[in-house]
Amino acid sequence: MMPAIEIKGLEHWFGKGELRRQILFDIDLSTAPGEIVILTGPSGSGKTTLLTLIGALRAVEQGSLRLFGRELRGASDDDRIAVRRRIGFIFQQHNLLGFLSARQNVEMALELDPTIDAGERRSLASVMLAKVGLGERLDHPPSKLSGGQKQRVAVARALVGNPDLVLADEPTASLDKVTGQEVATLIERLARERGASILLVTHDPRILGIADRIIAMEDGRIVNAAENPCD
């Protein structure tokens, strides 16, 4: 089976000239389809940079990065945009559009697919919101939702298009303990239902339990890659 993510010898630098500084050193990593991987490490360890490279949000400079079998090194902007449409993003902040209702926000993820008509978008979004427990709040604007509810809308938006990969950056950081755990479990359950891989960056020890594998990074290198001892 083709790995979802396949990285070999990936290196990355920030800055120019004298200030040029290496952020990632010789990263090798691959994940199987449906695998849930958590990336941990102190701030500045390069895990967020790695996430943006995998999310096709930055151009690959050196090494090989294949996503769903497609090489991203040397990919054009349009290629990267096309790849991004197969990824569901969940950010630390919900980043919902304030002028749209919860359902319209979720529908935004489906509008990129011209094969889905307006009625289908509506029903898919409603079903997805029901699954994250917001079936009663379809037409609420984000300003009328709690922090946890907003993040659940963001989860629904990331997963409604059946992405092959979900990238999440500290999705529970702005939530309290109980809500954070709920959201993490939700991400896990929905991704497993759909067979999507997850790569989740977090500091939050309370949610490590959802992972199949935990990868720790330090100073731009992967320092261990172990099966999750919690399993």
Partner: peptide
């Protein structure tokens, strides 16, 4: 976020 989702 829209750009990340694949909007051009």
């Amino acid at each position: 976020t829209l750009k990340a989702m694949g909007y051009s």
